[in-house]
Write a protein that binds this DNA or RNA. Structure first.
Lengths: 168, 168
DNA sequence: TTGCTCCTCACGTCACGTGAGGTGGC
DNA sequence: TTGCTCCTCACGTCACGTGAGGTGGC
């Protein structure tokens, strides 16, 4: 893996970077003119979308809107739906909600697929483990039947029979 | 279940009824004025929806539209989205597609949940089965640990310990 | 003939985007 | 002062629904 090769600080550095990136994505950094330019739309449009609850940018202490990277991405997605796909804002709202639902379902499906794989592996392993322990116990006596005695003197009787569990 | 109680012809009758119902649902039975009334919309609106590909009613040999029960249900769903939720037709189109996707995903999830349950049950059963066969073999030796010798002379060592697999 | 069907065209309404206009703080 | 912000109001455009108008077959 690329992360753990290199300067040896790999894992810690990657994790810190990811956390930082995730924090930054949510952070309000763009005032309305910049956000509008990034999303390729009119600043007034952006205000309208906020009024309709499609985005909820942070505000500065002076009440200036501050959009995050995630806000901008959402705006671009909205822009795509309205301009390219021709949805109105009610449709955008509905579709955004559904997309979140679909994402959650996909995550759930992925979890379940993984869980099923695990279960299958666990099952094979456990059965194998129990089989092995059975074999370990039985194999040494394969040529004998043993009848336990009541006291300290067990009796051992050689027998002849085909082995079980080892067909040819 | 109510279906299988009663006159004893339950299962066959239910299946036949379901197939019949499913066929009827797809069958073009309503001319445009009836379908429009059932869906509570203007006949002209219905023609418009067909032109946009939102429904695809059958046609009679005389070219008269014939809507199925399923068409009518779809129309009512569309009506709900446009009137109550305020979507435009592009939104309706997108949402209908997404609803189908979600339905497929839910079916897939249900299948996987069932499969996981099955797997878990299978696993428990199989391990139990193997355990039981192991137990049948080793119970007679319960009071001893055995160290297999290299040759024909196994060594047996009496030990004192609680039995496994038989708590209390 | 009446009442349905088919179609196309046109108009009213409403949502949305955007521009204008007025305010205030760096 | 300039250029941003905030806000509200208003207008142009476009989508959609629906009515009108003309056709044809039971």
């Amino acid at each position: 893996m690329a992360e753990s090769s290199g300067d040896g600080r790999g894992k810690g550095r990657v994790r810190r970077t990811q956390v930082k990136a995730s924090l930054d994505e949510e952070r309000g950094v763009f005032m309305i003119s910049v956000a509008a330019e990034l999303a390729e739309m009119h600043p007034q449009t952006l205000r309208m979308y906020e009024a309709r609850g499609l985005i909820t940018p942070k505000r500065s202490p002076k009440n200036t809107r501050l959009c995050s990277q995630r806000d901008v991405e959402r705006l671009r997605r909205i822009q795509q739906m309205t301009s390219e796909e021709g949805l109105n804002l009610a449709g955008v709202e509905t579709v955004l909600e559904m997309e979140e639902r679909v994402a959650r379902m996909q995550a759930e499906l992925a979890r379940m697929r993984k869980r099923t794989e695990e279960l299958q592996r666990e099952m094979t392993d456990e059965v194998e483990r129990v089989r092995r322990s059975l074999k370990a116990e039985i194999v040494p006596y394969k040529a004998y039947d043993v009848i336990p005695a009541e006291g300290d003197e067990p009796v051992r009787i050689p027998v002849e029979r085909p082995r079980r569990d080892h067909p040819a």
